[in-house]
Design a protein around this nucleic acid. Structure first.
Length: 510
DNA sequence: CGGCCAATAT
DNA sequence: CATATTGGCC
């Protein structure tokens, strides 16, 4: 074995220093590839003839970790011979000609991957995976230590999880940019996340198993791309999975600082692999991914504004590990974000019908949550699309690409609104969940008694601002209760108005 | 608890 | 430098 899992785990700055055998009769090509690899800190030995390469691999002292071999019409047989002889060396075949049968043959004969030329940096960057793959596979078989094989197993399972999830994402329209965060490695069978099990936190392995079986809906745990092999511990993984989507631990080389000395976080990161997470409870940072946010929104929708309080939302979301505080903050952030954009710079200004409370910032002392839905439930205020002429729609800005990821998948619309006005807005609504009876009644009561719980919602002036803001800045989250019109509806509306072409410019609404 | 917001992290 | 989150405080 060229390299064991243990070697890898102890490797400093992996994959730096990985030895690559490069065989390409085209010297120019070889040099280009070589220099690219070297930029990535691989150690490259280039060979321009097969014989040289063959003798090099027979010299065990060379200790290559991975090989990149060019194949072309004419030298195939020799290359296949190379594959034959280099059984222990993960070999990547590459060629100008992407003939499927040649590719297939290469793979069949043991090549770990076939890369089309030219070999971009992206393609080359992750060739280390083959080394890791091999090492871990072998490790699982050979290691005497039970733990080791378990680690390898877990690792493999994790790989499995990610694959599944990633595939899932690829088939999912709602896929968030998150999934692109990591540039997909060229190798399909092995994902980049080499994580390592932190023994000390290893509570049990069965939890891990459960995770594995978890539905593919989960967002995959963010992968740490660090200089060294960094690893997750089981708890973390379990935790992350149990959150179902999105709560990631900080990059795994961070210790969990005591809240008290939070400033220490960076220092802590100096102990990448061997952090002895004492309490085992590291602070995880909640990643409000689209999935998580969707849950959040659904919960808020279910509860209705009246009861959308953190604790209840938390309950409904049923996401392990999420704290009330997390939810509260999220709730508020959304709220504040809106307010900030809706009432920019009007610091001193109060709502028209200012009420008796003293704190200027409590515009909605009783209903501080998502303070804007009510107005939009009122037909008088904002009955149909298009909006009143005073706010010419800037349809060109409503395209899906300009929405934050969760917008496309999350309906900020309250149920009754969906029922009654979705059509008007041209937005067929897709219920992301079956139905919520309690909701209906909640909303119905809202509908029949518009002022039910919003006795003092802001005056029209403010509402106008809200609407205008929402229209002008489609990239901002919409207040609960507002939903963007579909591109189709906008375009058809435009054509009704005699505008048949949409300017390509995507801003331009001020 | 529920909220707000300054301090931090990203 | 702008946002996103957390930590604390009221």
């Amino acid at each position: 074995m060229v390299c064991t899992a243990n070697d890898l785990l102890g490797w400093k700055d992996f994959p730096k220093g990985l030895r690559v055998l490069l065989l390409d009769e085209d010297i120019d090509s070889a040099n280009v590839i070589k220099s690219k690899l070297e930029e990535m800190d691989y150690v490259v030995s280039a060979f321009y003839s097969e014989n040289d390469a063959l003798s090099a691999i027979s010299d065990k002292s060379k200790g290559f970790h991975v090989a990149i071999v060019e194949v072309r019409a004419g030298n195939e047989d020799g290359r296949f011979k190379f594959l034959e002889r280099a059984k222990d060396l993960p070999t990547i075949m590459t060629s100008d000609v992407n003939c499927i049968s040649t590719m297939m043959k290469c793979i069949a004969l043991g090549a770990v991957e076939f890369l089309e030329k030219p070999l971009s940096e992206d393609k080359l960057r992750n060739i280390w995976q083959h080394v890791a793959h091999k090492a871990f596979n072998a490790g699982a078989k050979d290691e005497n230590e039970l733990l080791k094989s378990e680690e390898a197993l877990i690792r493999l399972e994790k790989v499995g999880i990610k694959q599944e999830i990633i595939q899932n994402k690829e088939h999912n329209e709602e896929v968030s940019v998150e999934s692109d965060k990591y540039h997909a490695p060229s190798t399909p069978q092995l994902k980049q996340g080499m994580r390592h099990v932190d023994n000390e936190d290893q509570t049990n392995l069965s939890t891990e198993k459960e995770c594995v079986e978890h539905d593919g809906e989960s967002k995959f745990v963010e992968i740490t791309c660090d200089d060294h092999l960094v690893v997750d511990n089981v708890m973390e993984t379990n935790f992350s999975k149990s959150l179902e989507e999105g709560i990631n631990k900080p990059s795994s080389n961070e210790c969990c600082p005591d809240p008290k000395d939070g400033k220490k976080q960076n220092e802590a990161s100096e102990h990448p692999i061997s952090r002895s997470s004492k309490s085992g409870r590291r602070k995880v940072k909640v990643d409000w991914s689209s999935e998580l946010h969707k849950k959040f929104v659904q919960a808020v929708e279910q509860l209705g504004v009246d009861q959308a309080i953190p604790s209840r939302i938390l309950e409904l979301m049923n996401v392990e590990g999420l704290t009330r505080h997390n939810v509260a903050s999220h709730l508020q952030q959304k709220y504040r974000l809106q307010r900030r954009h809706i009432l920019p710079k009007e610091s001193g200004r109060k709502w028209p019908q200012t009420r008796h409370h003293s704190t200027p910032r409590n515009y909605y002392p009783q209903k501080p949550i998502m303070a804007y839905p009510p107005p939009y439930h009122s037909n008088q205020v904002y009955p149909t699309w298009p909006p009143p002429h005073s706010y010419p729609p800037p349809p060109q800005t409503w395209g899906p690409p300009y929405y934050p990821t969760w917008h496309s998948s999350v309906s900020w619309l309250w149920n009754p609104y969906q029922e009654t006005q979705a059509e008007t807005w041209g937005c067929p609504t897709i219920p992301s969940h079956p139905s919520f009876p309690q909701n209906v009644s909640q909303f119905q009561s809202n509908r029949t008694m518009p002022n039910n719980s919003f006795d003092h919602y802001p005056g029209d002036e403010v509402i106008d601002k809200v609407v205008k803001e929402a229209i002008n800045k489609p990239w901002l989250p919409l207040p609960l209760g507002l939903k963007p019109p579909s591109t189709e509806s906008v375009i058809s509306e435009l054509s009704k108005q005699g505008i048949s072409t949409v300017p390509p410019k995507i801003n331009g609404c001020h």
